[in-house]
Design a protein around this nucleic acid. Sequence first.
DNA 1: GGGGTCATGTAATAGGTTACATGATTCT
DNA 2: AGAATCATGTAACCTATTACATGACCCC
Lengths: 207, 207
Amino acid sequence: MTQKRKVSNLLALAVLSYLSQQPMHPYELSRTLREHGDERSIKFNHGSLYMVVGQLAKAGYITEVETSRAGQRPERTVYALTDEGRAEFRGWLAELVAEPQHEYPHFVAALSLIAALPPGEVVHLLRHRLGRLAAERAEIRGLIDTTLAQGVPELFLVEEEYRLVLLDAEISFVEEFIRKITDPETGWGPAWAQFHGQTGPPPKEET
Amino acid sequence: MTQKRKVSNLLALAVLSYLSQQPMHPYELSRTLREHGDERSIKFNHGSLYMVVGQLAKAGYITEVETSRAGQRPERTVYALTDEGRAEFRGWLAELVAEPQHEYPHFVAALSLIAALPPGEVVHLLRHRLGRLAAERAEIRGLIDTTLAQGVPELFLVEEEYRLVLLDAEISFVEEFIRKITDPETGWGPAWAQFHGQTGPPPKEET
DNA sequence: GGGGTCATGTAATAGGTTACATGATTCT
DNA sequence: AGAATCATGTAACCTATTACATGACCCC
């Protein structure tokens, strides 16, 4: 479904969002996105921004309103949202909120192949991961706290709170996984180590 | 870090994994991946597979070992893992297990811009999402149960269990979010509705 | 007044997806 | 025997990332 949109890069959503407040030129968008901290939530890079702006213009969601010049700086093309752009923005955002998307996090991929590593090493790696997860958690926690302390309403931090919730869930999962491997009674370690190497994972049936 | 790898598409990891068990030709890889259900965890499409195989060969991780023909079918080029390929596989997989990657889920992007929608609509959309999440949860739950019932060891289902854990966390988060908007005492609804439209989200400071 | 870095954008390259092509097998 | 599907791959097309370019402003 998402793939029917004329512009699918999420960076475009942020652009539509900012242009819905006022017309801007691409560099201004770029700066605003960075200052606002949106790059934590939306993959951003300079080149892609110009690409996306071009796509949006071609799709009719934004139009060039003027090309001004300030001081002796190069010309800047200022874009504004069109009515279709506003509709697209609302609709797209609504869809993203209402419909979960199937995604492919790296850790899921790794887990799906993890039997290829020996269990001892896996435990080691998972412990390392736990450390990183804790650090990340602390960082997000700090970001939230200092931002709230500046008086920003919690509403503008929900994405960080969501991240935090997912992080906590992942931490529990990893801890539990380590336990399942290492439990002296029922641990998978021995069977895993034995099987390891000669045979691959058995096929799974479709539902 | 991940971006230093000569081949970064995760599909390549699956290819390395299967070739570490036995040489295969691309179509066989394709079939095996599909049958094994790996496309749930790793984005897969026919065209990309050939691309990735080409990249792996160019990088020296796999080599063409023969080009056989069975019956009157077209020729098939069979590939085998090289020693470098094996090392890359182990190292890459280990890194994915040990080091969390910064990722950009769609829902995070949506949350970061959600203030642009009116709170009433957001609640509606979130309730819709809850339904979808529950359905997805049930599906995964079923997949796990039937697969376990077939005697497949739990180890080969960890990625689904992880997904389940994340899903549960997301469900709680969404429920809580709805509460925060709608609570009759302290709900964000009124302030949000009022602010809505004229002004955009205030800037956040960097940490 | 020369060395950074800000401001602004374009171009080259690489990566990924979709569409197309074609002989073989199987089904009716 | 014709239709559908499997098996196998290539090519065309988009998207995205990196690298390059260039004038202005700012600092010492």
